[in-house]
């Protein structure tokens, strides 16, 4: 217990960094992911190609490599970002590829007759998607999207390797200073992650039941 009291400030600050990193990358991943999924089902071939290229590239590249690209590659084109911003960009762009795949499979699960009926009424591509297809796709997309975001929360730990003082980055320091309490230190960090991921899983569950009733 003494350990928690002594290191409360360090743990709290690190936890807040992880939380902020999760929220900001999550927003970026969601927005970019939905745009990419939309591009992949659009009637314009170059847009489809571009989005497919993006998704395949990021899905098949280790996140650590994406971090290297953002943090050391961007300065090469005269764009310097802070480590924290770099981490948000890396995690957000990487996760966007998985969000796009989840949303696209949700879109494909909506019967084509729905989009046809929308188009037959005179709705444009964007309107059909917004008014008819996406709201229905959302129902099947909730569980896979939940997994994507929980994985993302854990993936933010890679930022520790790039000088961001988030939860995992406290481990070496705290372990060195509290060698006798190794398990307690680890437990503290695990609890930090669970405070973020467990409510996420719970929210996904709730949402899943809500949209199931609406069906």
């Amino acid at each position: 217990m003494q350990f928690f009291i002594d290191n409360f400030d360090i743990l709290r600050d690190a936890f807040l960094q992880t939380l902020l990193l999760t929220v900001l990358s999550g927003v970026l991943a969601l927005v970019l992911g939905v745009v990419l999924a939309t591009m992949r089902v659009s009637p314009i071939p170059p847009l489809r190609g571009l989005a497919t290229f993006y998704v395949e590239t990021f899905r098949n590249t280790p996140l650590t490599v994406v971090f290297f690209f953002v943090i050391f590659g961007l300065p090469q084109i005269d764009t310097v970002v802070s480590f924290f911003t770099g981490a948000v960009i890396a995690v957000g762009m990487y996760t966007a590829a998985f969000v796009a795949e989840a949303v696209r499979s949700g879109i494909n699960s909506v019967s084509p007759g729905q989009a046809e009926a929308a188009r037959a009424l005179g709705l444009g591509f964007g309107q059909s998607l917004r008014e008819v297809v996406l709201p229905q796709a959302f129902r099947t997309v909730v569980p896979p999207l939940g997994s994507v975001f929980i994985a993302m929360a854990k993936n933010t730990s890679i930022a520790a390797g790039f000088s961001v003082s988030e939860l995992s980055s406290t481990l070496p320091r705290l372990v060195n200073a509290n060698a006798g309490d190794l398990l307690v230190v680890l437990l503290a960090v695990v609890i930090g992650y669970m405070i973020i991921t467990v409510p996420m899983a719970y929210a996904v569950n709730r949402l899943e039941r809500r949209v199931a009733i609406l069906r």
Binding site: S111, G113, Q114, E116, A117, V132, L214, R215
Partner: peptide, 9 residues
């Protein structure tokens, strides 16, 4: 349409 295609949501 044959299958109505009312907007289900």
């Amino acid at each position: 349409f044959q299958s109505f295609n009312l907007f289900a949501h």
